[in-house]
Design a protein around this nucleic acid. Structure first.
Lengths: 238, 238
DNA sequence: GACTCAATCAAACGCTTGTTTGAATATCCT
DNA sequence: AGGATATTCAAACAAGCGTTTGATTGAGTC
């Protein structure tokens, strides 16, 4: 009744409690993504996992420990696959790498079925929005490095785009991705099903070329200037 | 010690408990937006408001009642101002209405200082991500009508854009707005402060022309077709 | 078969939660 | 003044929370 769990040592045999551990992780991932982290109790999770109420604390130390374990289970996989796909882009025959390919390399690991699928995606979106200091640190630890790599790759692919524009468009890409992952259902009602962001395959098919087009668009500074004679943006309404 | 509060009847004098009511609303708005709805207790709120622990239940019936009151206080104002600004667009001299103007009419009421400012904006973003059935219904009740109006206005402004593209771009606009409102601080670190989405004025100056440019972009279907000889999107990586 | 030790279990810990209660207080009306 | 009413208050309620405890289990080792 003492120490925390030690990771699978790599040999074929697994620790005896591993099955329970996984069931708790699965239940926690599902319930956290459905009701938010503060919205689910450890008792609910362990009950759903068919385990004793004390099992979560035994295997993960605390609720926060369980949260981090749930997050780490897929986050590192996503970050790793992102890096690999980005390297593939750069090693491609026709360089510089195609913008679509970079965008796809960023989005696919999050939105395709592996790495927890839509359930884990929804949890990530929740964490970004809930965004306590704990979760923010957690998110940054796993994803800031990969985001940084993509920013430099994008800068190489778009050498003429001002940094200001690049960062804002990256921000748009992140926002779109998170919103797509977080929202299974609202938009379809509004649009009579003309687009379905909860179908992540359809979402990828649209978002990858669309975001590439956004990155390729001319810098917005000049766009504003061209518009100025007509109406100064930012003063339009006030 | 019985009935719930009745709204200000419009005459100069206000009910006696109105001051407390407002202090509770203010404290709740701030704390909800900082820690999420499930992350704050009524006791914390009433303490921050300098009121008795029972005051929240007295004035709003229940915690859910307080949540709805906090939301309603600014949501209806935002929706109303949106409608008014959209009508202004259509009454403008040079028709069809400028795309920038429509986008600004959609974003400004949420992102400018009135209607709760960044605090309430953050709360909205949280609610979208938390997205229980209750909050979803609440959000829809106040904003679906205005979103619908903007969709038809955009369709008029862009008659040649397929509905599918229009809806997806609207989705991108929503996601970008929510992400901008939800995230005070992460991107700046990543980008050395080259863009600051938490400064909502700077955000508006960039997002309005950028989103207009996005809406004006050519339909993505044809973009994919043009790309097909090189690489079929959606099969790029798998 | 005895020993070991990770894993499970029922039970309890102290604390916080949302909500209710009934008395005390403040304000207004006549 | 006095009575009516709206609001505040301290206190309590049952329920649920995260966590800890100490006994019990059961597979692996000697």
């Amino acid at each position: 009744m003492t120490a925390l769990h030690a990771d699978d040592t790599g040999n074929g045999i697994e620790p005896r409690g591993e099955a329970t551990r996984q069931r708790i992780l699965d239940a926690a991932e599902r319930l956290f993504s459905e009701h938010g982290i503060n919205g689910v109790s450890l008792r609910t999770i362990t009950a759903a996992a068919g385990a004793n109420s004390a099992a979560a604390n035994y295997h993960f130390g605390s609720k926060q420990g369980l949260v981090e374990a749930v997050f780490a289970r897929h986050a590192s996989g996503i970050a790793t696959e992102r890096r690999a796909l980005l390297d593939d882009c750069r090693a491609a025959p026709g360089r510089p790498p195609l913008l679509e390919q970079i965008v796809a390399a960023f989005l696919e690991p999050s939105m395709r079925g592996q790495h927890g699928g839509t359930t884990f995606a929804r949890l990530r979106a929740r964490m970004i929005a809930e965004s306590t200091d704990d979760t923010r640190r957690l998110y940054a630890r796993y994803f800031d490095d990969s985001s940084g790599r993509f920013l430099t790759a994008l800068r190489e692919a778009l050498p003429e785009l001002p940094a200001h524009d690049l960062h804002w468009r990256f921000h748009i890409m992140l926002g779109t991705m998170v919103y797509t992952l977080a929202n299974p259902g609202r938009i379809q009602i509004l649009t009579d099903g003309a687009c379905d962001p909860s179908d992540t395959d359809e979402a990828l098919d649209y978002l990858v070329p669309m975001l590439a087009q956004i990155f390729r668009g001319e810098p917005v500074g000049s766009g504003v200037a061209a518009l100025e004679p007509i109406l100064k943006v930012g003063q339009i309404l006030r």
